[in-house]
């Protein structure tokens, strides 16, 4: 579902509020954060989607990495996970086995446990996880808190929406987009650890609403504007040419429309880079704001770890909440 439709729907829902609930429904949080004790919060997330690659094992890997990412984006540690499966009865169970093994591998890598799940019969397969994690309250990363002057960091390249659309269209093979698949399979665990210890002021992960949509949420929640350096944003090279060939996923247009009134591109902006800015991601990177004095060290630590593509992509400004000035043609 696109961000506009979701906004409309959520606006009609009763608001959930509780002294122990640290997250809110209104902010479109994809994880619930609940304070159990003064030194302990529980983080509960859920994510699932239809296959985006051909290999069932890789699909399982990606779906699990994507679901776990919601915990990492909050600075938490995943503990247990439950599978959510929709699968057509007429397809061989060997395929489902491969998907589940793919999920199991990633959850194991995350040092968490898969403890069960639920399966229904459905025409189009879907797979994902509900993950429970924990954190100390003072180690939580939140979507609000970005301060003017903070440097904005993105840890994974953009373009997975365009590349998986091209895969679906037969314009690319799984081998040809291996780089993006590896990236989607990669846990945000190490990136999360590094950001947590770099004085991070706000953090979220980049998924279906694209860099534009998730950035907008972060800026609105923090009551700040930002200047984005389009040319600095890490992207998968192939996604640029495939965007020119008409491989834009429908979600990209929804994100573009949703963010349009907040997006202020300077003249002569590169349209293709703008497409990437709005491209919906699966298991995308972490988007974080960090005080300027810590940014350089944080970036080099990220690069030495498993986020070689991490880049500083902009700076937080004082200004109307959510406003994004896009620089760089």
């Amino acid at each position: 579902m696109g961000p506009c439709d979701l906004d409309e729907l959520l606006s009609r829902m009763p608001q959930t509020a509780h002294p122990m609930l640290l997250s809110s429904m209104s902010g479109k949080e994809d994880a619930a954060i609940y304070k159990l004790r003064d030194d302990l919060v529980i983080i509960q997330t859920l994510d699932f989607f239809p296959p985006i690659v051909d290999s069932p094992r890789l699909y399982g890997n990606i779906a699990a990495a994507n679901a776990l990412s919601d915990i990492y984006a909050k600075g938490g540690r995943p503990l247990i996970a439950l599978n959510i499966v929709a699968f057509p009865c007429e397809i061989s169970l060997d395929i489902l086995f491969e998907i589940l093994i793919g999920g199991y591998e990633k959850v194991k890598e995350a040092d968490a446990l898969i403890v069960g799940g639920h399966t229904i019969d459905d025409e189009v397969p879907k797979y994902g996880l509900s993950v429970t994690g924990i954190s100390r309250p003072d180690e939580l990363m939140k979507i609000e808190g970005a301060k003017p002057g903070d440097i904005i960091i993105l840890t994974k390249p953009l373009g997975t929406g365009i590349l998986t659309t091209a895969l679906k269209a037969g314009f690319q093979t799984e081998d040809e987009i291996k780089e993006a698949i590896d990236s989607m399979c990669r846990l945000n665990r190490n990136a999360s650890e590094i950001l947590k210890t770099s004085g991070v002021t706000a953090c979220t992960d980049v998924t279906g609403f694209g860099l534009s949509g998730h950035m907008l949420e972060l800026l609105k929640a923090s009551n700040v504007s930002a200047e984005i350096w389009l040319k600095e944003i890490p992207v998968f090279e192939k996604a640029l040419s495939l965007a020119e060939e008409g491989m834009l996923p429908a979600g990209l247009f929804r994100n573009r429309d949703y963010c349009a009134e907040f997006t202020h591109p300077e003249e002569e902006i590169d349209q293709i880079l703008l497409d990437l800015f709005n491209d919906p991601q699966t298991s995308g990177g972490l988007l974080a704001t960090i005080p300027e004095e810590n940014a350089e060290t944080a970036l080099s630590r990220l690069k030495e770890s498993d986020s070689p593509e991490a880049k500083a992509i902009g700076i937080v400004l004082d200004g109307p909440p959510g406003k994004m000035h896009l620089k760089g043609g």
């Binding site: 008409g246 834009l248 247009f253």
Partner: peptide
């Protein structure tokens, strides 16, 4: 019948 398809088909043909 939608903007996404209009843009994608146009881009593809031009490419």
């Amino acid at each position: 019948d939608n903007e996404a398809a209009r843009e994608n088909v146009s881009r593809f043909a031009k490419s």
